[in-house]
Computed example of a mutant assay.
Amino acid sequence: MQAARMSGRRQLVTTAAFIAVGGLVLTGCSSGEETSSDPTNNSVEGNQAEGDTVVIGFSGPAADHGWLGAINSAALAEAEKLPDVELRVAEGTNDANLQISQVEQFINEGVDAIVLLPTDGAALTAVATQAMEAGIPVINVDREFSSPFAARATVLGDNYGMGVSAGTYICEQVGDQPDAVVAEIAGIDSLPLTQDRSAGFKDALEGCGLEVNNRVAADFTVQGGEAATSQLLAAAPKIDAVWNHDDDQGIGVLAAIDSAGRDEFIMVGGAGSANAMREIQSGEGVLKATIIYPSTQAADGIRLARLVVQDKAMSDLVEIEVPNRIVLNAPVVTSENVEKYLPTAFES
């Protein structure tokens, strides 16, 4: 009987707490004559409602490989879906000085927002800060600025997380072999994103007692991947697992592996290209997995720029403003889940 009374008391306390919290939520979302059923700036209806036209300037690097091409095309496609967005696209460039002039042009034109995937985050920090000081919110994509004052919001892939995902998968596959030989084919070593990927990989491998035994760096191109892998294979007569940071350069990596006639190891890719996923799906080669690095980042930036300018927020969050930092997930794609990710993958 006492247990029943205690149970009832807990239920009353829980119900009261729920009512109190519910009252706070309704109060926090209300203003003026608005009722709890009215659309708010972070409701689905309020988020999607067409508002005043938002002019967005978009600048990114030259689309010299598949992932960057997918970044650009996804941004354009997303803008086309939004009737209240006017997108002005600067020509893709790998010249930081030219990109600085593009942003300066956007500032002079008085655009409402700028979505910027910088060729070099540090080099573009000053002009991005200039835009922010002019009252133009900047959405920083993929490569971070060196100052928090240079962007209203930042959308990033999880580079460290990519390394962790790759290392964790390799631990699952060969971690029971204490003498397993692990190789790494990185991208451009001078880039912070490459350094983050390598750091995450190293940390994950330590969890199962492994380490990187052989490492080379390429340049995110097919030619660079093939040359670096040929060098790696010549230096390492035995390998148990390889992580290649980038599926675009992975085309060259796989070509070098094929030329060398090596198949004693498993390989993990990076970024999540469609051709890598089809290779995984076939089950015929050394490539067994790839780690997603989303090519939706600039498209996400377009959506966030619209929300910021229209004073809206993300409909799946209680928060009434757009977050200032969003880090996307880095899942592992294998033969078991490849069909889920293949439809949205980019072509290398």
Rank of each mutant, 00 (worst) to 15 (best):
Q231E: 13
S230V: 02
V155E: 02
E86F: 06
L205M: 08
V13C: 08
G301Y: 06
D120R: 04
E347T: 15
I292W: 08
F201P: 12
D189Y: 11
A96E: 12
T27D: 03
V155P: 03
A330T: 10
A128T: 05
G69D: 14
Q297V: 09
L191P: 03
G121I: 05
Y169D: 08
Y169K: 03
I139M: 01
N41G: 03
T334W: 10
A260M: 09
P178Y: 03
A74E: 07
T14L: 15
V141N: 07
M132A: 01
A274I: 04
L76M: 12
L254I: 10
G270E: 06
G207V: 07
S190T: 15
P192I: 03
T221V: 02
H65F: 13
A227C: 11
G28M: 14
N47Y: 09
G51S: 02
I326M: 12
G28E: 13
K81L: 14
A241L: 10
W67R: 11
V286P: 12
G8S: 11
L317Y: 13
R303D: 15
A228D: 10
T15F: 11
D52P: 01
A204E: 08
S190Q: 06
P137R: 00
E45T: 12
Q173R: 06
V308E: 01
G60P: 07
D203L: 02
P323V: 00
T334V: 08
G51A: 01
S198I: 10
Q297W: 13
D179T: 14
A256G: 12
E86P: 07
Y293H: 11
R88I: 10
A90P: 08
G187H: 00
E34S: 15
G22K: 05
P137K: 00
A255R: 09
L233I: 13
T129G: 14
F265D: 06
G32Q: 03
